[in-house]
Design a binder for these strands. Structure first.
Lengths: 167, 167
DNA sequence: TTTTTACGTCAGTCATGTTGACTTGTTTCC
DNA sequence: GGAAACAAGTCAACATGACTGACGTAAAAA
């Protein structure tokens, strides 16, 4: 590859640097998921349930197809997990008002409590890493992670607010 | 939590910031693994095989227990995957010379070729993200990812070399 | 010599994904 | 208004990758 300078930092990427990036993803993700997985095992649920509970909590009123687009699994896979969550009273479905074909999903009180418990360990982990790294590093993290993911979902992550800006 | 300033950046972490961090991990990892998964499916292998091939390629002569420590799965789980890779001629085992109980693992030529093909998409993805983000962002990414993972494996990631330093 | 370690294996189970086919209701389009 | 498209759900069969528990063998360490 002819090295055309694309900016102020030519970034001579060695094989070793790329390997390190791949491994950072592997180890961080492995440890990031380990805690909630252990909690889930105790109540006979799995990581798939966590993901559903997380995104339903994130987007109350989300439709089944929207959820499928995020998770990128088949509806048959989602179906099992989702119906278990509904049966156990973590998630409720109501028929869409605008489009009555849709099932709008939301967490029950119990579901919110579960989500909070599961994600707390992860939130704490992120918070710890963010605090230790500092604001500039966090912004770099954000930029690289956005570059790693497919372009399609980047719009879900609005640019950070300007420093000193109050909401 | 009483906010004790821990450094130059107090980092007022909002719920929203933490959620964003969690989701960055989810989406980046989802897309990072999608390409090799698709390739693996064509040759009747799975993600587990990729992980083994990757780390055996990374650490030629690695022992089974070292590999287990990295993957954090049971030896029974590894066993199936590993013996398939050996049977298909991707990985070879030889008895340790110092300790004859050990099976030292290494990739065959065929295994190296597979590893290269599988990881190429991932390497390209990381390279693209790194180049687009710039050196400072990459360093921030590194710092945050190290903070997210458990402390135990951080030693695997030596600090970056000083700028201008030749190896 | 006993114990521990490294590795392998058999057996059974579970969670999570897949494909393919089909149904039901609802909306949209001509 | 009728046909087509769409959202969701369901049944069935299957693959993968994890798990626990029990047991065996060979080599190293105590």
């Amino acid at each position: 590859m002819t090295d055309v300078k694309t900016g102020p930092n030519p970034l001579f990427l060695r094989e070793e640097d790329l390997r390190q990036g791949m491994e950072l993803l592997f180890y961080a993700y492995r440890d990031f998921t380990a805690e909630p997985d252990a909690m889930l095992a105790k109540i006979a649920l799995g990581r798939a349930h966590h993901r559903v509970v997380y995104f339903v909590g994130r987007y109350p009123g989300i439709t089944v197809s929207e959820l499928l687009a995020i998770l990128q699994i088949t509806k048959q896979s989602l179906s099992r997990v989702l119906s278990e969550l509904v049966a156990e009273g973590y998630v409720e479905q109501r028929t869409g008002t605008k489009d009555r074909r849709q099932r709008l999903l939301a967490l029950t009180e119990k579901g919110q409590e579960l989500e909070r418990q599961l994600s707390d360990a992860q939130r704490a982990r992120i918070a710890r890493a963010y605090r230790a790294a500092g604001a500039a590093a966090v912004e770099g993290f954000r930029t690289v992670m956005l570059g790693i993911m497919d372009e399609a979902d980047r719009a879900k992550f609005p640019p950070p607010r300007a420093p000193g800006t109050k909401r």
